[in-house]
């Protein structure tokens, strides 16, 4: 029995090794760069002066763009949970999560939109996307 467990453990670990870089879809090498867009509202940012709020909005929009990019590179995990009791829906939850590594993302633009929010666009070359997909599995795995 112990031997069987060892063999199963070995198989599972070896399997983990092989799936590390396998199965990640590759993009065509000459394709356009992958872009991520993020927005952040200026008014709700912390800060004592309008300039501070603007800078915080730039940061927030940048993070949102990074997240968008991570989602495009590594994908997102969606979980839904709906509970019904006596024929009636009493709980309906939807959860989406993203986790991954982003390297060499460059800023395309940081633009104020009607002085109410900031828009940040980041982009990554296709070769970089393929390298990230090949070498790093999404962090939730």
């Amino acid at each position: 029995m112990k031997r069987l467990i060892i063999v199963l453990l070995a198989g599972a670990l070896a399997g983990g090794c092989t799936t590390l870089s396998d199965g990640a879809p590759r993009l065509a090498g000459d394709g356009p760069p992958l872009r991520g867009i993020g927005y952040a509202v200026i008014a709700i940012q912390p800060g004592e002066t309008p300039a501070q709020k603007q800078l915080m909005a730039i940061r927030a929009s940048r993070l949102a763009a990074m997240r968008d990019l991570a989602e495009r590179i590594h994908g997102a995990r969606i979980e839904g949970n709906t509970a019904i009791g006596e024929g009636q829906v009493f709980s309906d939850n939807l959860r989406g999560s993203v986790a991954g590594l982003v390297t060499n993302a460059r800023v395309v633009s940081i633009t104020p939109v009607r002085n109410t929010l900031y828009e940040t666009i980041l982009e990554v070359d296709v070769s970089e996307v393929n390298a990230m997909r090949a070498s790093h599995r999404p962090l939730w795995q």
């Binding site: 997240r67 990019l69 309906d92 959860r95 999560s97 993203v98 991954g100 590594l101 460059r106």
Partner: peptide, 16 residues
């Protein structure tokens, strides 16, 4: 430094 390596984590939750 972020251009070299950045780890991103994000979660969204839509309730009932």
């Amino acid at each position: 430094a972020g251009r070299v390596k950045t780890k991103i984590r994000g979660a969204g939750h839509l309730d009932t």
